[in-house]
Design a protein around this nucleic acid. Structure first.
Length: 260
DNA sequence: ATGTCGTAACGTTTACGA
């Protein structure tokens, strides 16, 4: 089962780029972030025509997450638990039914947090604390699950071309990295880093200042696998070439292959 | 040199979020 994550930065502007990639990469499941539309504005027919089931958790103008799946989706829930005041659409869960077994999927768009310090950074850290709480609940089930999406966290200096440029940014501040490590130390496997070591692997290049042409990127889109999911990991990848196409997102797809 | 996008809104331009 090939499961991908892709921050598309606006479904209206990205429709052809997204469908071109889907047709080539053929993921069984795609977790999407920043759809930037309400549920009614999501062009679900475009994906249903390709055999995908579609579940969205949208919002007007910004944020918004979705799941496309060629396999059946069950028990869909929307929103990260733990704060009734939080109206940002950044979390969606569903159970996908594979040929031999099922897996719970959490698609996430973690808050950016800039400028830091400030209320937006406080929101980011509080959100990560809530994610930890939800992760603990799911770990207790001992069923396979994963949490994938745009984490807006650069885990280590090797995950940026110019780490010094990000040192005071909410994506790389020590508290952000510590919160990410706290998640990992609960028992998760960060899929990409179990397979690929060293610098030079990025998932985001800013639109500004020719970042793509200079390969001035950062790695902020991640798959965290529960122990029972990590047992089934077969392969990982970053579809880097997508960033060089017409009207690209500033992120590229990342994916895992699981033998489920 | 404050550099680019996407989205929304009393909109041919500005504000916000990234």
């Amino acid at each position: 089962m090939k499961i991908a994550s892709f921050n598309i930065n606006g479904i209206k502007a990205r429709l052809s780029a997204l469908t071109d990639w889907l047709d080539e990469a053929q993921p069984d499941v795609a977790l999407l972030q920043e759809i930037k539309t309400v549920d009614e504005g999501f062009p679900r027919e475009t994906f249903e025509e390709r055999g995908y089931n579609v579940e969205t958790h949208g919002q007007k103008g910004f944020n918004g997450v979705a799941i496309l799946s060629k396999l059946p989706l069950e028990d869909v829930t929307r929103g990260l638990p733990g704060d009734d005041e939080d109206d940002h659409a950044r979390w969606i869960e569903a159970t996908v039914v594979g040929a031999r077994s099922s897996i719970r999927l959490c698609g996430l768009y973690l808050p950016n947090g800039n400028p830091a310090p400030g209320p937006k950074y406080d929101y980011k850290l509080a959100w990560m604390k809530r994610q930890k709480a939800r992760a603990a609940e799911l770990l207790a089930t001992e069923e396979p699950f994963l949490m994938a999406g745009d984490y807006n966290v650069i885990p280590q200096d090797e995950d940026a071309k110019r780490p010094e440029a990000w040192a005071k940014d909410a994506l790389a501040l020590p508290q952000s990295r510590a919160a990410f490590r706290e998640l990992l130390s609960m028992g998760f496997t960060e899929a990409f880093r179990t397979r690929v070591a060293g610098p030079g692997h990025y998932t985001f290049w800013d639109y500004q200042a020719g970042a793509w042409n200079r390969d001035d990127g950062i790695r902020i889109d991640h798959f965290l696998l529960s122990p029972q999911a990590a047992d089934h990991l077969v392969d990982v990848g970053i579809d880097k070439d997508i960033r060089g196409r017409e009207k690209p997102s500033d992120h590229v797809p990342v994916w895992v292959e699981l033998d489920l």
